[in-house]
Amino acid sequence: MNQTDIEDILNVHLLAFGDEEGPEIAALARALLALPDTISISAQREGTIAGNVLFTPFVFRDHPGTTCYLLAPCAVLPKHQGSGVGKELMERSIDHLRSIGVDAVFVLGVPDFYPRYGYVPTDKQTPYPELLTIPESWMALELTPGAVAPLSGKPTAVEAFMHPELWDTSAYG
């Protein structure tokens, strides 16, 4: 990925999340893109990046052999929202993650978007379970049958996600 692609991806996150959250999400995306294990999937329209989703390792301490990723952030440029870009991102990313042997994907997200793609609420812990006030927003997508049920113990995300405020759902919904 070249510097122009990175800047385009950051711009998608900045614009999609707006003036209030955009700068923080773009900074998070920049930090995640600098990590070697981050998976970045983009969708293009009119020759430019119209949407992007990032995936980073998510490890359950008691099950280090199960390959899990955390989906975040996911963004679509405002002018392309509602036009199928988000659907393309989800379908392409699921196909890619399955093809590389990922067992499960977790997301703290919008409860009426991700279930369209197979994500279901999960009782598996977040890094800060006491901050999960909207349980249906914590979801998992099982890519390997039977991979999620045995997961237990406290999970760990990449350092950029190990901040309590990123897991606090009390301000939403």
Rank of each mutant, 00 (worst) to 15 (best):
N2S: 10
N2F: 04
N2G: 15
T4A: 12
I6W: 09
E7Q: 14
L10T: 04
V12I: 05
L14S: 06
L15W: 01
A16L: 02
F17T: 14
E20F: 11
E21W: 09
E21H: 15
G22R: 10
G22N: 03
P23I: 08
P23V: 13
I25K: 00
A26T: 00
L28I: 05
A29G: 09
R30T: 00
L33D: 09
L33P: 10
L33S: 01
D37A: 14
I41V: 15
A43K: 12
Q44C: 05
R45I: 00
E46G: 14
G51T: 02
V53W: 04
F55I: 02
T56A: 12
T56V: 10
F58I: 04
V59C: 12
T66P: 07
Y69D: 01
P73W: 12
Q81K: 07
G82C: 06
S83W: 04
G84P: 12
G86E: 02
K87R: 15
E88H: 10
L89W: 02
M90P: 06
I94V: 08
H96E: 09
V102H: 01
D103L: 03
A104V: 11
G109V: 03
V110K: 15
R116Q: 13
Y117Q: 09
P121T: 07
T126K: 04
Y128I: 13
E130L: 09
I134T: 14
L143S: 08
V148Y: 11
A149C: 09
L151Q: 11
S152V: 06
G153Q: 13
A157H: 05
V158M: 12
H163L: 05
P164Q: 11
W167L: 04
D168Y: 05
S170R: 14
Y172E: 01
Y172C: 08
Y172L: 15
